[in-house]
């Protein structure tokens, strides 16, 4: 897949590969994008813990703790991102979990700044390429590791 192979793998301090928890938070059932992202990340050597649908902030926090995750990736397609994403950030902070939250899906550009200021690490909007997905997740993991 040229989109990924052309993306230079950044040197990072992790000995083990980056581990990403992928989930849909709440009621939204659109999982096509999340599944594509899961395979894209795997093909790029990233370990994916796929929780799938109908997850809660508690179940995601628990998975991060158990799996020693580096990044949380949430997919949102129902225009609930302005409520759900900050809820996830807060739940992670409350659990003293220093894991960056990356949001993907249908997020209008005008909402991105709001999400970033609410503590979301990055937003991958509609049309993000495979290379962008991989590099964004890697950058989020690196940044967290550097903290």
């Amino acid at each position: 897949m040229s989109g990924i192979s052309s993306c230079p793998a950044p040197a990072h301090p992790h000995e083990a590969p980056i581990r990403v928890v992928l989930a849909k938070l709440g009621l939204d059932g659109h999982d096509r994008g999340l599944k594509v992202v899961a395979r894209t990340l795997r093909d790029a050597g990233i370990e994916v813990i796929y929780l799938g649908l109908r997850q809660t902030t508690d179940s995601i926090v628990a998975a991060c703790e158990q799996e020693d995750a580096d990044v949380i990736g949430l997919s949102m397609h129902n225009a609930g991102h302005l409520t759900l994403a900050p809820r996830m950030v807060k739940a992670a902070r409350d659990a003293a979990l220093d894991v960056p939250v990356v949001i993907g899906g249908i997020v209008p550009a005008e909402d991105v700044a709001t999400l970033i200021s609410a503590g979301v690490a990055a937003v991958l909007g509609p049309g993000a390429s495979a290379a962008q997905v991989v590099s964004t997740v890697k950058a989020a993991a690196l940044q967290a590791a550097g903290r």
Binding site: G26, L27, D28, G29, T56, H77, N78, A79, G80, H81, L82, T83, L84, R87
Partner: peptide, 22 residues
């Protein structure tokens, strides 16, 4: 909207942010 499609009321815990959206 998603809560209606999933058989949940608007005041269900995970309906927040989804009520009347999609």
């Amino acid at each position: 909207d998603m809560p209606t499609l999933m058989g949940r009321d608007s005041d269900y815990e995970w309906s927040e942010g989804e009520v009347g959206r999609a």
